[in-house]
Nucleic acid binder design. Structure first.
Lengths: 208, 208
DNA sequence: ACCTACTAGTGGCCAGACCACCAGTGACCT
DNA sequence: AGGTCACTGGTGGTCTGGCCACTAGTAGGT
């Protein structure tokens, strides 16, 4: 037993993280099987499963019966969403989340406006034309989200980007939700970014 | 099996939620034992444990060997910690970290400046006098940290506060010099906050 | 009245079993 | 040679039963 007699599944989580890091595993990669992991970590399979289950619930990994366990891309995390589903209707918490998300967006915009390259511009423009072309509302909202994701990503700060992803996945699960921007808004957003006017860009988000 | 042949532990989570709601269980209350739950939910104990473990990782419940499982108050939820442990350590660069922390501080200051009460002011002043009184450098830095912590906490956003805590503690573990404020800086900070001048307050932090 | 030892109940952990499922493989038939 | 199909090994999904360590309450002794 370790010095601190820590719970086994927490220990496993830690070791799992080092396994992932040292193995250089990326999103989509396959983890060792539960039985192998149990042997690697010198623990029972059930303990390994307890650890994996925690991660699965959070959307950090995905398990497929008959195939294996795979690492999920950050865009599929459900950290905030899960917590929110259990802590119901806490107004203060909701306010905190929305407030924090707003802050992240604002910061990403002000960083991104000055980092936007010609390629970024082109990619965003392409998304816009795709948006205009389609009538499928589902596809439209997907593109809208992709547009936002690209804009946020331009900030060049991986940490902020992932924060935004987590917080947004929560907002999307809200009944009111609707974190989508329509075509016009996206276009204006792009224009403001071209002008490096992050304040105006932010206004697009805040006026909903 | 349910219609969608959902995974048992997810089903258990759902039932658990209804058990909590219908039982009117509050923070601090004790849940049924794992064996009882297994019987209630018509599942094996290991599946129940997998569900409970997920909740424990998030800090939604607390398990005490020999006693039982208890519901935790929202203030002890571990959303940020878990998020940080998986988002922070792998690909987060130092630049991202500092940038994000700076943003959190800035936002907390601008929120906090307008929420500061007489009590807050008094508490901060007390900390300042303690700081001035001591010569012990260790104690001084502790007080400095406490001062910052109080300032950040005034923003009234638990999420932001905990983000700051995580980011700061992580930053402190880096070889980079840490961010303590000396007595004079704390005093100026307090003065700016009194004037509700969050921009000037922020300058104290950013000039290091 | 106080301490002690016992007991029942709890979570912590594990080994093993069986199932459903998937992918690859090889034999078989055309 | 090409295509089909049953088989097989490996995987996660789940349950059972067991043993341990720990806690709190209790019955018993002093």
């Amino acid at each position: 037993m370790s010095i601190a007699s820590e719970k086994v599944y927490v220990e496993i989580l830690r070791k799992l993280k080092t396994i992932i890091q040292e193995g250089g595993l990326q999103a989509g990669d396959k983890l060792p099987s539960e039985r192998v992991l149990a042997h690697l970590v010198q623990a029972g399979r059930s303990s390994v499963r307890e650890a994996l289950r925690s991660l699965e619930l959070l959307g950090l990994i995905e398990t497929k019966r008959g195939e294996g366990t795979f690492i999920r891309p950050p865009s599929q995390h459900r950290l905030v969403e899960v917590l929110a589903s259990f802590v119901l209707h806490d107004d203060a918490t909701v306010k905190d989340l929305l407030q924090t998300r707003a802050m992240v967006i604002k910061e990403c915009l002000s960083l991104g406006a000055y980092r936007m390259t010609r390629e970024d511009e082109q990619a965003l423009t392409n998304l816009l034309t795709s948006m205009k072309a389609t009538e499928d509302t589902v596809l439209r909202s997907t593109l809208s989200l992709q547009f936002q994701e690209s804009v946020i990503g331009m900030c060049g700060n991986q940490l902020l980007y992932r924060l935004w992803v987590e917080l947004t996945s929560y907002e999307a699960s809200l009944p009111i939700g609707s974190a989508f921007l329509d075509y016009d808004e996206c276009m204006q957003l792009l224009q403001h970014l071209k002008n490096k006017d992050s304040d105006e860009a932010w206004r697009i988000f805040s006026r909903t």
